[in-house]
Write a protein that binds this DNA or RNA. Structure first.
Lengths: 145, 145
DNA sequence: GTGCCACTTCAAGTCGACTTGAGGTCAAGA
DNA sequence: TCTTGACCTCAAGTCGACTTGAAGTGGCAC
């Protein structure tokens, strides 16, 4: 398979060219040359982009993902790191599940106002004691377009 | 219960004073007066802050949360909106669960490199087809301090 | 040979939710 | 009365992941 220019990579990966340039600048991907000004990429970049997408979806920052690639360019992913992230995700999932159940109840509840619903007030207390004043990081979001 | 000044609200809610000022400016909370320069709040602001924390934890933006309070200051929460958010959360939860399972496997897998593990490659393909090029919103995160 | 146009670089802007800093004010204690 | 120090305002900065805009360049079709 021959080299791909940035537009082809963008098309095949769904990642905008501006993002590819940004990723290159960050050291997440590397171009193997130029045709004129135009960057050329090894087809392997597609797998790499998939790996990056995977990491992002799992909640890793770009900087963390960058660390997962050793100097030789081979992914060198720390199993402890993965386990830790899995645990973190699990905690998040349990929180979100509780929240979802609460929302569902609140949506279905027949109390005239949510403030009169005991379940809602219970959730509220939980939020007040646990989540209040805590920094929030959000879950996957639909594309902007 | 008597009125609280901003420091008391901060202490009792765990929300920094700077954030309280910010929320007031955004119209999420209201002070009921001043003692000198110092803001005074009705104790009910604590419940309101809990409600805001709850909304944030459920993934609502501050602007969305602001809309949930009618002009009279009473929460007027649309049940459809709650149901929609519950559904959205559920989708997120399922995605995160898949990701967690994948991470767990990758962490435990004995293949010499992740790239040689079929399960890992399957997850990778999923990420490539679904998540690649999609905007990400992250899940709850520990406080910064 | 020449024009087009998609690429290039680099700097700056965006978004959301706050935080930080400089300079000002005022209630309360000594 | 005077000092202290915690609050005040308003503007600007931060963080992460990109996007956007202006100005430049070079391969390719004609």
């Amino acid at each position: 398979m021959r080299d791909l220019d940035i537009t082809e990579v963008a098309q095949q990966s769904g990642v905008p060219a501006s993002t590819l340039r940004f990723y290159e600048e960050k050291g997440l991907i590397a171009s193997i040359g130029r045709r004129g000004l135009r960057r050329l990429f090894d087809p392997g970049v597609l797998e790499r982009l998939a790996l990056i997408a995977l990491g992002r979806a799992a909640g890793f920052s770009l900087d963390e993902i960058a660390l997962m690639f050793a100097a030789d360019g081979q992914p060198r992913i720390d199993r402890q790191m993965l386990a830790a992230k899995a645990k973190e995700l699990d905690r998040t999932i349990r929180q979100l599940s509780a929240m979802r159940d609460g929302l569902r109840h609140a949506a279905a509840c027949r109390a005239p106002s949510h403030m009169e619903c005991p379940t809602f007030r219970r959730i509220l207390r939980a939020a007040a004691s646990g989540t209040i004043g805590a920094r929030i990081k959000r879950a996957p979001q639909p594309p902007r377009n």
